[in-house]
Write a protein that binds this DNA or RNA. Structure first.
Lengths: 212, 212, 212, 212
DNA sequence: GATGAATGAGAATTCATTCAT
DNA sequence: AATGAATGAATTCTCATTCAT
């Protein structure tokens, strides 16, 4: 006699496990409202299951939230789509595309994390998860890799510092996405960044500020 | 004629009011632990006063926290000291100094704010306080001003975009300070940024990445 | 499959739900001490359950109190027993019985309500409950109905005003029951009304005060 | 050197003592809002004095409230004005006037008391005050006295029961004034009693309900 | 395994009262 | 006597977690 199936799962296509169902629900809620005011009851109600099940699949609320954040970040990165390949098009265009991508990822992910900042242990567990997972999620690495590739192709100055540029660009994303945060709940609006600012940022990165 | 003095204040040097004492206590706690798990009882106990006094001096916990954050940010900015004047020394050195300053401010301030992200209304009140106070606290403006001044002096390219550079540099501070956050409580350690990274960032800003 | 049962309920006869148990406890406390100084902890302790359960079954303290008052009033009315039918016995005897009944109901109910007067919203909710429930609880209506019936039978003057008489008699109950109120907690003693006063009241209602 | 005078009293005409000033303020607040949600701070603020003075003139909040209620009741009775003298006009008119008076007094006084019902000890002290004071405030006595006088004049049946009638009429006032209570804060509106009901009540009292 | 009521430790806030000045 | 800040117990309500069924 196999164990009982949660009512909410019956007749579901693909027959996800309850664990996956809970994770997906938590991920959606974290994305929608941020992790701030989320209670286990909220999650259970939204998932259509009893409040207690959670503890049959996760050690506690913290583990569930950390995994939900992780999944959310991974999905956001996946949704970004393809990153321009070094050597194609112009470097300016590619950087513009990369920056737009990075802003999109941060817009999706940061509000959820901001709410989690109050739960240190959630973030700790999240970090552990990050370490364990294959990293395509690390934007900084993606940017640095791209720059190094272009460097090898001679389309970026040999003296350029890929790591520094990547740090700057990712930091810029924080800066652009976070300010609207105080107006929580997280704005669904995609952090309205004027295209000229993108152009300016890229131009700055390309040419620097030294007079010539 | 004057009413009673709080036991915790008697024999205190400088004769601070209890309001100031509470504010200072809250500021210290916010700096040490972040605003996240801070309770009014924590603050009162730490201040050595009764739990209820808080409400004789502040409308509620939110007001106290917002003011504590504000004071903390102002103090951090003050501690940073003087900002190099445009036209003196070299632009590279000045930017390096500015960046070090900005990192120091963010190191002091961000962890406290990260914890407050879960309390939207605290941040709202904080923003109001910011608007009301004389602003030297806005690092982005300070950076952009400096760059514009150097631009006028011809020591920065006429085509440079001060705003974009400022955004990048401030964003870079977030990026450099935040990652250690998951290991809350905030490390007192001042965000160990290798000097070469500073050099690299500045070099990037100065020269850009275009091959020449 | 079913969730846990409250410790306080195990081995209880009749297997009441905890909701009913809480309601019964609150009703008893309201009857004994009035709704005035009643705290949620009092109720929980008296019910032998954890402080928080209350909120699993009622929106808040107010809802519980309103329902407790309602149950108390309904029970008091039920305990009063049968009301004399018009046309039987003598009108004097019937009025005497009705008055005694009314006094009994008010004795049971008024002290509880007096304490609730300070909680407007409790009373509002109580009133809503009253509207929703089948009414035998409205003593004024019962009295007026009786008088109108007797009027139709010719045993009460055609010119009599049933509504006015009913108002007077119910008001008389207030007057007789309330004075002892200041000596709260409510005396369990049933408002010791001398039988001659009952006789006098009824005689007055029957004959009026006009000289003949 | 005479003791300090409260700031709020200086330049006040008649130079009332602070005790009287506090009492008057409390009385007004009790009349306006009922005794329910009244805090000592409210009273002190309204009186323009420090919160602590109260305890220099009254044992505690309860004593002040009891005295305020007492004063309020006495003033309400005084405001009622003259009561018709036995032997003048018609008995019907006089009873109508008395009833109207009684309703006015209850309208003014009951809401304040309803709020005090939650504070048993306030009412106890009030009762003690009542016992100690000359009673013109006792409406029941006024009504009974009037009826006995008319009885002696032969304008009311020798067999009538003045006490019973007085009880009924005062009770009627409760009944007429209290129902609107659930809509606290106390309605300033003077308990809108239709004149025909007054007529009906008086007619009932005069003629009784016996068919003739 | 799933259920969901029960648990109980806190959280923020109020307010009568005290008391040094 | 007046002041009014300090005191601290008490209040309602929330919510992560447990556990009998």
């Amino acid at each position: 006699m196999s164990p009982r199936t949660a009512a909410a799962l019956r007749g579901q296509e693909g027959e996800p496990t309850l664990r996956e169902h809970l994770l997906a629900t938590a991920e959606r809620l974290v994305a929608e409202r941020g992790a701030a005011g989320l209670t286990v009851r909220d999650i259970a109600r939204e998932a259509g299951v009893a409040a207690g099940v959670l503890y049959n699949h996760f050690a506690d609320k913290e583990e569930l939230l950390a995994r939900a954040l992780h999944a959310h970040a991974a999905n956001a990165a996946r949704a970004v789509g393809e990153v321009p390949a070094a050597g194609t098009g112009t470097v300016e265009d590619n950087l513009r595309a990369l920056l737009r991508y990075a802003i999109a990822v941060h817009t999706a992910v940061l509000p959820a994390f901001a709410g989690a900042a109050a739960h240190p242990r959630v973030l700790e567990r999240f970090t552990e998860l990050l370490r364990g997972s294959a990293g395509g999620a690390d934007l900084r690495a993606v940017l640095a890799d791209y720059l190094r590739s272009e460097q090898r192709l001679g389309r970026v100055a040999a003296g350029a510092r890929p790591e520094a540029v990547a740090t700057m660009l990712v930091g810029t994303c924080h800066e652009l996405v976070l300010p609207p945060l105080p107006t929580v709940p997280p704005t669904a609006a995609p952090a309205d960044v004027p295209p000229e600012l993108i152009d300016d940022l890229v131009a700055t990165v390309i040419d620097g500020v030294r007079p010539r």
